[in-house]
């Protein structure tokens, strides 16, 4: 079963730059996929189209049976509730504690207090941060902050987790810890993970499916891929 199907997608920004040319792609449920490519190759653009931050100018982007391209602006929240998103810059609220940051997502959805508590603690346990529940983001290391962001992304148990260079600000060791967390989430929760990255070492170590973009074109899709410099 494919969770995501991308058909004949083109993305041209208003300033005339074409970031994606005629992309066709299918991603299976439960898979772990890297999106690699040089700077400006269109990785972030692809991720943004998946959570409907950007609309494709042509084609269909189908996520869980829903054509995201056709989704009306005021219905976008329905899509967002079904997926988690993690960024390079964490995007935590500095005035809220770790617990509150993760709970924030569920509060926005109007969930009950005791349910929120349970889910938040479970998510923090999954990312290995159960002992820092009451800390504030500025009291945490970069790796820990990124784990909070991951906990927030998975707290609602989404089918799909999108990561745009989640290790971009971290040293290799911390990066590998984050990758371990993501791998566990993929295995234990069955969450489909799509991760855009520059990091050659991570891609080579993880041996996951790899999608390579070059200047907006899909150049290859490999099952247990490596980061191939020639392709980029």
């Amino acid at each position: 079963m494919d969770l995501i199907r991308i058909k004949n997608v083109e993305k041209k920004y208003k300033n005339g730059v074409t970031a994606i040319y005629d992309l066709n792609l299918a991603i299976e449920k439960g898979s772990f996929v890297f999106v690699i490519g040089g700077s400006g190759s269109g990785k972030s653009t692809l991720i943004k189209m998946l959570y409907r931050e950007e609309k494709p100018t042509k084609g269909q982007v189908i996520v869980g049976g829903l054509d995201v391209a056709k989704l009306k602006d005021r219905k976008v929240y329905k899509l967002r509730r079904k997926l988690g998103i993690v960024f390079q810059d964490y995007r935590l609220l500095p005035k809220l504690t770790v617990f509150e940051n993760v709970a924030f997502a569920l509060e926005c959805l109007g969930e009950k207090k005791n349910e929120i508590r349970q889910k938040v603690l479970k998510a923090l346990e999954d990312v290995g941060l159960k002992n820092k529940v009451h800390s504030y983001p500025d009291q945490l290391s970069g790796g820990e902050q990124q784990r909070v962001a991951i906990a927030r992304a998975i707290v609602n148990d989404p089918k799909l987790l999108l990561c745009d260079e989640p290790t971009g600000n971290l040293d290799p060791e911390r990066s590998m810890e984050i990758m371990q967390v993501l791998e566990d989430i993929n295995k234990n929760r069955g969450t489909t993970i799509i991760m855009a990255t520059h990091d050659k070492e991570i891609v080579n170590k993880m041996k996951k499916q790899v999608i390579t973009l070059k200047d907006g074109h899909l150049v290859n899709v490999k099952k247990k891929g490596k980061y191939e410099d020639e392709a980029i």
């Binding site: 959570y51 005021r74 976008v76 929240y77 329905k78 899509l79 967002r80 509730r81 079904k82 998103i85 995007r91 609220l93 924030f104 997502a105 926005c108 959805l109 109007g110 927030r152 609602n156």
Partner: peptide, 16 residues
């Protein structure tokens, strides 16, 4: 602004 951006990401409706 930041808070609103995050609310959007985590799926808060326009109403919320």
């Amino acid at each position: 602004k930041k808070e609103i951006g995050i609310m959007r990401l985590v799926g808060a409706s326009n109403f919320t």
